[in-house]
Structure formats: structure tokens, C-alpha cells
């Protein structure tokens, strides 16, 4: 018998016994706490309501605005063009497909920042990229865009331009009427069609 064969046989036996007694370890695919802390601290994870509004008006196809409040709240009032994924159904397959789409900027909002932040942290821990939180949530959006306050004539030109942009956006969404008219117009929200392509890296949610 060739001596090399004997060595290989012994090696295979050792490796085989090693596998037999190998403890079953489940890999933790979540990102490290230190890294998450850095990301939480990073202000660029917030997008201001003005930036979002600008992209909504321009019908940016790379933007998905996600309302994480309940379906009932979404039906009562929501930002036109946004879609509803309640926080408790964030981990459903259809939601994960949207989160896993690389080329989309996923922006969460809730009434304030809290629920949106929770959704952001869950998605970040699952390893999803290009997810953001709309700063100040729906309240801030409503107060700055829909109820934009006319600045005094003595204000700098930037402030006046910002006001004009906000006023224009408000008219874009709700027409020329009173700002509260928005409440009755929630049914005119356009349906966003999203190409669902599951990212390979998002397999932590299961599936192939």
C-alpha cells in the first residue's frame, strides 16, 4: 500500500471525526454593535422633509417613501406618493423585497421620528443599505410644507425662496385651496410601482 494513501486516509478520518463532533454554530449575520452605533450617530441617515418633497415633486423613481404607521392612520392622512408598511409587518416577504432592492432609497416616516427610527434600526441590523428616516416625521412635514408660514419681507432671499418652494409643493399636492383640503384628498395618492428584485445579500430573511 502506498504510504501517501495511508496519510490521506488518516487525514480524511480526522476531518470526518471533526465534522461529527463539530458544534452546530449559527452565524450571526447582523452587523456589529459598534458599527451600528456609528451609523446611528451619522446624521446623513436623516433626510429633511424639504429634500423628500423636492424628490416627490420631481417624481424621482429611486425614492420609496414608506409610512410605518398603522393602515388606519395611513388611510386617514399620508404623504401623497408614499406606501404603507406598518411596523408590525416590516418583516413580511413583500416588505423585505422592497428593502432588498439596492437602487431604491427607502425613506421611513411616522408621526414623529420614533417608529420610523425603530424600522430603520431593524432594517439596518438586517444589513439593508440605502435606508433613511424623514426628519421630524409627518408632523414636521405637515407644519413646514402644507402649513408653510410666509416669512416677513425683511427675511433673507433664501428663506423667501424656501417658502416659495414649500408653497409650490403644497399646491402641487393639494391644489390652490386651503391647506386643510389635503385631508379630503388622500385618495388621489398615486400608486408607486416598484420593481421587486430581491438582493442576494438580503438572504438573512430566508428563502433562496
Amino acid at each position: 500500500m502506498n504510504k501517501n494513501y495511508l496519510i490521506l486516509t488518516i487525514l480524511a478520518l480526522i476531518l470526518g471525526f471533526g465534522i461529527l463532533f463539530m458544534p452546530d454554530i449559527k452565524h450571526n449575520n447582523e452587523i456589529k454593535p459598534e458599527k451600528l452605533l456609528l451609523m446611528v450617530d451619522e446624521p446623513s441617515r436623516f433626510l429633511s422633509s424639504d429634500v423628500i418633497t423636492d424628490r416627490l415633486v420631481k417624481k424621482d423613481p429611486a425614492l420609496v417613501l414608506i409610512d410605518v404607521r398603522s393602515a388606519a392612520e395611513f388611510k386617514t392622512f399620508a404623504i401623497p406618493g408614499s406606501i404603507n408598511i406598518p411596523l408590525d409587518s416590516l418583516l413580511e416577504t413583500s416588505s423585505l423585497e422592497i428593502m432588498g432592492t439596492k437602487d431604491l432609497d427607502k425613506v421611513f416616516y411616522s408621526n414623529a421620528d420614533v417608529a420610523a427610527d425603530q424600522a430603520w434600526i431593524i432594517c439596518k441590523r438586517m444589513g439593508f443599505e440605502t435606508i433613511y428616516v424623514m426628519q421630524g416625521g409627518l408632523n414636521n412635514w405637515f407644519n413646514t410644507i402644507v402649513k408653510a408660514e410666509k416669512p416677513a419681507d425683511t427675511e433673507p432671499i433664501e428663506t423667501v425662496e424656501l417658502y416659495q418652494f414649500r408653497k409650490g409643493a403644497s399646491q402641487y399636492f393639494y391644489g390652490n385651496g386651503d391647506s386643510t383640503a389635503g385631508q379630503s384628498q388622500q385618495n388621489t395618492q398615486k400608486k408607486t410601482t416598484i420593481l421587486m428584485k430581491k438582493e442576494a445579500g438580503a438572504s438573512s430573511g430566508g428563502g433562496c
Binding site: 486516509t9 480524511a12 478520518l13 476531518l15 470526518g16 471525526f17 465534522i19 461529527l20 463532533f21 463539530m22 452546530d24
Partner: peptide
Amino acid sequence: AVFAFLLIMAAI
């Protein structure tokens, strides 16, 4: 693990 071990044994 058991299957891998048996396969190694069968191969040898």
C-alpha cells in the same frame, strides 16, 4: 455532520 462522516467513510 452524520451524513458528511458517513460519506467520508464510504469514500475511504
